[in-house]
Design a protein around this nucleic acid. Structure first.
Lengths: 197, 197, 197, 197
DNA sequence: AACTAATCGAGACGGTACGTCCTGTCTTACT
DNA sequence: AGTAAGACAGGACGTACCGTCTCGATTAGTT
């Protein structure tokens, strides 16, 4: 678990035994998240199920949200494959659709996002173990589009990511409109109008 | 406090006495939010400061988040005036800037948004007493732009709102980038490229 | 549960409901003490068995030792009847024998005494709910002896109590000698030589 | 550290290295006891300060109380010189006074006594390294008195010790009366009335 | 003016998770 | 072997907050 510096991610014991423990706790957390969402992924519950003591858990993670974030990142690691439709519009629209469907299907995502507000120590974990993957995916797609000359030069990948996914998160959090595929398409279309030539 | 049906907002006793009580509780909640954010706006604290008993509070609101949402809506009621620069780009960019600054300055906003995920009963209150005002503002600006023929016909006000503000909320929640004025401008520029002609 | 002032015993809610709760917790504590000694009388255990929440227990008692002390006082309330042999020597010797046997049979006594060292807040409970009864018994016996003119005038009831029971407690705590009836008699005889004419 | 059999005191490695280690741990324990009482003399603390690892400590002593008991015995080894007033009353009264003052001034004594109840494996250490010294002192004084014919023949040194110091310990543990010099004198006077001619 | 509902203030309670603490065991690698 | 270093399980601790509840007091509206 080599973690780069300045990520806000806490160092933890590194021996073989510790790694087994780390693994056990994460596995238990994944199971609990699947069964009962973030609410069920209590520290006590993780400890009870994994056989890892609470004290040890707190040596590996700063809070229960942090374990959940790492567990969720693992749970969803490969869930979203990179689309390859041949055009930037196609790729990015497809990705927005997928992410939209994923968010709608995984209440844990919203719960984690929310929990990170209350529990700032967990936010780096969420960014590192979950968001980073999404942003990298977009960066790849965006680079492809750049190479093909399909993007507006004034826009960078970061901003593009925010504009494509921000609206999904907005809806997810406030629940003012459902996250259907149609809606995802509308958002993608309108957003891409500003990002591509 | 006439509340339309189907909003998910709970009816409560309507006598003169009840209205005083409602008012007292809200006032206390506003003060507590200002002083210590959502964390400080405990049920017990609201009860203690307002002299309204907890039981009564739970007759008027379904949860502590709901009071806080209504209180926050009141607190921020008139904080953001409608810009009028003469052009859609100017108006909307200005509004994005203002909202961005407001979010960055008011941690309570993110806290409330987060709390509504955990506490679904409170979400309607947040939408009704806070978001509704923002969406109306955009609706007005958007209608102006429509009247001037500045908008793309394929985009409606709802989608425009999501695309303009979603990115801000995304950043606010994950904290992966700061909400400076420059960033707000970049987002507004890129987003508006897709929304306006 | 009218408690005189300045005893160090904590006030607690006094309604009918609270009294039921107080009773429930004590009953559970008594059972646990009987089953597994002071070690078993955990706050969590008392809470679980009685159905009284931990938070409530901490409103009624300052610590787990305090509940145990009150429970033990109740448990042993009438265990030791006042002897009446007709003479001070007989009465006091008999009382020393009884107390000695009781201490030896009730490990909880020593455990409580020990716990009060670590947990000073519980000491008043032990004194009030347990020791007070013993000291009163001796005071009664001593007064009888005074009335009969059997005591040395230079000795008061308090000192007599300390000299009669102190040695028992000394042995109980350090375990350097067993608390048999013979030993109790030796102690009583030697001690009473200094107390009576 | 030659320890007779059947004392309940645990054998431990005997090489030169082991003895250095034993010494280091004890020294650290003594310091910690002086600084913060028994509470501060944690296993971890002793380990950290002495550089002796916890595993090693547990090869030399059965529990943390045991180290503390041995350390305390060493700390107080020569603190109480034998009085020599020329009479048994004088000697023993003086000794009671000294011990009383010592108990009152050294909270560690009560803490250790209490800890031995919970931790029976440590009791032999307390008896061996601390109490034994006190009892020997009394035995010496008592023998002097016997030689002078000042004692009652029915009383032995053991019982005398219990009757003289038991009351002090009783007060120390329950705290129902302070351990002032006056009180010590009252106790000594009353107790010695039963022990001497 | 009295009566009867509704409504309220006060605050205790059950439930539940939290994060901390310390003991004694265990592992690993070094001397 | 014996040791240093230190991670680990286990389990109690005492705290915090939520939302429900019980009680007696207060207040409207109704008769």
């Amino acid at each position: 678990m080599p973690v780069s510096e300045n990520t806000g991610i806490q160092a933890f014991p590194n021996g073989a035994r510790s790694q087994r423990v780390h693994e056990s706790a994460l596995t238990a957390a994944v199971e609990l998240l699947e069964e009962g969402g973030l609410t069920a992924a209590t520290c006590d519950a993780v400890s009870a199920r994994s056989g890892v003591s609470k004290a040890t858990i707190y040596k590996h993670w700063p809070s229960k949200t942090a374990i959940a974030a790492e567990a969720f990142g693992r749970l969803m690691g490969e869930a979203l494959p990179l689309p390859n439709t041949g055009s930037a519009v196609g790729d990015l629209t497809e990705q927005v659709r997928q992410v939209s469907a994923f968010y709608a299907a995984q209440p844990v995502f919203a719960q984690l996002l929310a929990a990170c507000v209350t529990d700032p120590a967990a936010a780096p974990y969420f960014r590192h173990f979950f968001l980073a993957g999404r942003r990298e995916a977009i960066a790849t797609l965006w680079q492809r589009a750049v190479d093909r000359g399909e993007t507006k030069p004034s826009v960078d990948a970061e901003t593009a990511t925010d504009i494509l996914f921000g609206p999904l998160i907005f809806r997810l959090m406030t629940g003012h409109k459902p996250l259907t595929e149609e809606e995802a398409d509308k958002i993608a279309a309108a957003a891409l109008g500003g990002l591509l030539r």
